[in-house]
Design a protein around this nucleic acid. Sequence first.
DNA 1: ATCCATGCAAAGCCTTTGCACCCGA
DNA 2: TCGGGTGCAAAGGCTTTGCATGGAT
Lengths: 132, 132
Amino acid sequence: METQSNLRMTRQRQVILEELRRTCSHPGADELYARVRKRLPRISLGTIYRNLEVLSANGDIQKIETGGSLKRFDGNPEPHYHIRCLRCHKVVDAPVAALPEVERLLDGKTDFAITGHRIEFLGICPKCQAED
Amino acid sequence: METQSNLRMTRQRQVILEELRRTCSHPGADELYARVRKRLPRISLGTIYRNLEVLSANGDIQKIETGGSLKRFDGNPEPHYHIRCLRCHKVVDAPVAALPEVERLLDGKTDFAITGHRIEFLGICPKCQAED
DNA sequence: ATCCATGCAAAGCCTTTGCACCCGA
DNA sequence: TCGGGTGCAAAGGCTTTGCATGGAT
């Protein structure tokens, strides 16, 4: 467990992290709850939410604040972008390297202290295209 | 009213659109409700939500699906980016021209049919910086 | 006259929280 | 030991929806 800080590593936290890293579906809390429950049947949804919050604050995972109403999480803590299907709301990783330079576009143009950026591509996934 | 389609233009819809265009605060439904209510005291929150949905679907306004939990709306229908304060959650327009080229980064790399993209810069606003 | 839009209120969805007990370091 | 973590369930915030009425074209 490559946690950079002094988080207490409970079984629940460990399994949540493992399951999140095992999937590539960028699950919301509910989907992850279902997965984790197969291994820890007595875990509660509240624990899922609390840990997703703590783990993302700690940099072990990412909260993908994408357009949808649902909060999604990504087991990959490295900066990268996403593509979201406008029809089925699926989220996949964008096959592009991160562009740290884009933040320089704001140099001298804003009084905000810029600390990051996010890019989200929108489109229709292959499956939804086929359904037309 | 420069509506491109055959939307029925009710007084409520008109006032919502006007108030949204008058502010630069990228308000959520609640804030807009408060503003509109000064002119139409009997309007309901449901009407605000329904109209924001219809107007954004029609291209008259934009739904800014930013990171926060709150849906925000922008009276400016032209493509542009935003900066969000991580501390107070304020959203302002980013002083950068849109970069339609970024979508070409995905050419031949995904099976999604890309229709758009969004960039959101994250940082701390001047006011919040001063409070440190 | 039609059919979309509105007001009102209830329901819904997702997320957060209080509390007593538990457990990892 | 002891302070953070957990399970459970209730509460919360924001958004959507059903229904009868109202209004724009």
